[in-house]
Design a protein around this nucleic acid. Sequence first.
DNA 1: GTCTATAACCGGATAGAC
DNA 2: GTCTATCCGGTTATAGAC
Lengths: 211, 211
Amino acid sequence: MSTKGRSAARLARGAVKRQQILDAAAKVLARRGYAATTLAEIAEEVGSAGAGSLYYHFDSREQLIEELLCRGVHVAFEESRRAVACLPASASPLERLEAAIRAHVRSVLVESDYARASGRSAPQVPSDMWGRINADFRRYGKFYDQLIATAMASGELDATVDRSALRMLVVGAINWAPEWYRRSGTSTPDEIANLLVRLMVRGVGPAERKK
Amino acid sequence: MSTKGRSAARLARGAVKRQQILDAAAKVLARRGYAATTLAEIAEEVGSAGAGSLYYHFDSREQLIEELLCRGVHVAFEESRRAVACLPASASPLERLEAAIRAHVRSVLVESDYARASGRSAPQVPSDMWGRINADFRRYGKFYDQLIATAMASGELDATVDRSALRMLVVGAINWAPEWYRRSGTSTPDEIANLLVRLMVRGVGPAERKK
DNA sequence: GTCTATAACCGGATAGAC
DNA sequence: GTCTATCCGGTTATAGAC
């Protein structure tokens, strides 16, 4: 993306460390949550000697975390959107929604500490910070909502159910999944995603003989 | 329940304040989460002047919160069990599971700060404390698992799905619900519970004409 | 039983050496 | 750019007055 040449590369070297800090912070936040995360633990995760070192790259704990959370939503959002965009044009609205859900589950369970950190920490962020970042979360929510609305319009989902409640139940189940999912568990992330999609569409009641 | 007469009543007077503290702490924990709750805020909620006053009733912040969380699971557990027990003997295994889910949703969304606090905070408790209380959470999980297993055995749920994953997705959606549910929202708690039950059993795909 | 004061501690943030 | 030392505010916990 950069068109700035060598000087950009020189700047980028600084940016590398910045990245590493963000990566480390995402890891810590994903396992500790917003309130319990300390700069000391982040510093340890990056290999720095003390928390003071972080202040060369970031103005404050809040700013560091805010940037991290923003990236988290964008990662999950981008993954979902890409998964939808990769479908053939013939894909139905429901199939698009399903692809988004599967991608979201993958982001949160296997791919990204950022996505995991965002999902987990979103509810605990202080209100002033939330005021600055909730637009990003809403955008993602809106994206989901449109996928659902379209699937309803096509007749693939029951249009009489509360779209908002449906979305939040599904997204909630996804955001909660990192709390219990373990690699040693019985189901893989893909199997979990498949189960969640199935719950949304037809449930786990016994297969009824269709007309 | 007490059979101790007047002296118990005298002791109980002290216990009343203890209760009020626990109630206040549950309220704070439910909205702030484990890490962010401070004794000062709990004291303010009960109307005490300072945090120091709490130490007459509790040994430490940890002990106070631990007791509160234990009560939280028990409240939700008890509500669910009672809801199941109140069903007529003719109720099917699936109907029992549904009743438990509805009761759990009600506990978490409207009835109990304790249940809400427990559900929200469980993932953030430090490991030493978790070691002491996870048995209670597991007992509740086991109860759910048996309801699911029985519904599968009766043929009302597909016995080929991963019971554990199914349970955690459903419980996860419930535990997450307080994060987004607002009284001003479009659906009532009962409607949310109904939707969740429907997702589990038949999903929101279009009603298929049955055989 | 509850209050006030305070000790002990911890985490965020700054400053200056290197 | 990173480290070390340090300050400051907030939080848990204790002590002693009332």
